[in-house]
Simulated scan of single mutants.
Amino acid sequence: MKETVLLIPSYQPDEQTLAFLRVLTEASTVPIVVVDDGSGEKYQFLFEEMQTLGITVLSYSENHGKGYALKHGMTYIMDNYPAARWLVTADSDGQHTLADIQQMIDHYLPISGKLLLGVRQFYLKQTPLRSWLGNRMTTCMYYASTGIWLTDTQTGLRKFSLHDIPELLMISGERFEYEMNQLLELPHKGYQLATIPITTVYEENNQGSHFRVIQDSFLIYKPLVTFLFASLSSSIVDLALFVLLSLIVGESAGALLFATSFARILSGVYNYQINRIVVFHSQHSMRQSFWKYGILFLTQLLLSWLGVSWFNTMISSVFISKILVDSCLFIASFIIQRRMIFAN
């Protein structure tokens, strides 16, 4: 009985991909399912060769993205491997070694409620610059969002229980953002994340990757950037009102307190509603979250007034002082709201 199935999404593979799969089929006894993500007629001979190796190949005509391919494969495996207990996903671009894939297959995983990740360690001297920068940014933003420090948020080497596939199919995303959405949504649903170290491999400086820097980066960061947009739009209202009032009432400590308070109250009401409904999709009622937000609001109000007053004595610019202070408060506010106020 085959308890684990290996799922590999593939888009426009090459001879190296075929060579690796040939070695993989010789070394491993688990069923392998490859999803042809609309690679086109030019690449069909490679997928036909895969089938001669005993690999199940699923194909469709148009390219939809990695997330779509993973969901397509998961649905097939759920329907055709009823005796299987676990699913391992891996990339086809040469970034996972045979030993690491086998390590994931052999590693024990509970029947449900846990996600196992094969994580790489990124060192600047050994990693292409765009990959190193992208990974550092995503790791920091993911930590701020969830409180979980994960050194490799983009790893495609993952292990799930087949019981969890219906939950995985409900997660949004059809391209590279799907795997990030897994990491954002599953912990909030009670899933535990476990990691094992794997080898960091970049063949030909990662030139074989189909990752679209601008489009796919936007999709990956979209869940995290939503909060930034809400906060920036609130800050525009806050800053405009503050500057206008400071010009009218002056720049004494008392005047700055009035200007800060009035501007923050109006922008705070807007910010609370957009964060509760749009950003964090809070399932709590307003009564449950409003008093917590109120405490945070008053604390930020006090710290903003004190900070702006203090900085203004050193740099003699209320505008610059406001930007510096509120930029620091923004980071703290995001973490507190995500983890304490609107956490589902």
Rank of each mutant, 00 (worst) to 15 (best):
G73E: 00
G73H: 02
G73Q: 04
M74A: 12
T75I: 08
Y76H: 07
Y76S: 08
I77W: 00
M78E: 11
D79I: 15
Y81S: 11
A84I: 08
A84L: 08
R85N: 09
R85M: 06
R85A: 09
R85Q: 10
R85G: 08
L87V: 07
T89E: 04
A90P: 03
D91N: 14
D93L: 06
D93E: 06
G94L: 04
Q95H: 12
Q95K: 15
T97R: 09
L98H: 04
L98A: 12
L98C: 07
A99Q: 07
D100S: 05
D100C: 05
D100L: 03
D100W: 06
Q102T: 02
M104W: 04
D106Y: 09
H107W: 09
H107C: 10
Y108F: 11
Y108G: 12
L109M: 05
L109V: 01
L109W: 02
L109N: 03
P110K: 15
I111K: 14
I111V: 14
I111Q: 13
S112P: 01
G113M: 02
G113D: 03
K114E: 01
L115C: 06
L115V: 06
L116S: 07
L117T: 01
L117P: 00
G118E: 00
G118Q: 03
R120I: 14
R120V: 14
Q121P: 05
Q121N: 12
Q121H: 14
F122W: 08
F122M: 13
Y123C: 14
Y123I: 13
L124K: 15
L124C: 12
L124W: 10
K125M: 14
K125T: 08
T127S: 13
T127N: 08
L129S: 14
R130E: 14
S131P: 06
W132Q: 08
W132I: 06
L133V: 14
G134R: 05
N135S: 09
R136A: 08
M137E: 05
T138E: 11
T139G: 11
T139R: 15
C140V: 14
C140K: 15
C140A: 15
M141G: 12
M141L: 14
Y143D: 09
S145L: 10
T146Q: 13
T146A: 12
G147D: 00
I148E: 03
W149T: 00
T151Q: 12
D152V: 03
T153H: 05
T153I: 07
Q154T: 13
L157T: 00
L157M: 02
L157Q: 02
R158D: 00
R158Q: 07
F160Q: 00
F160T: 01
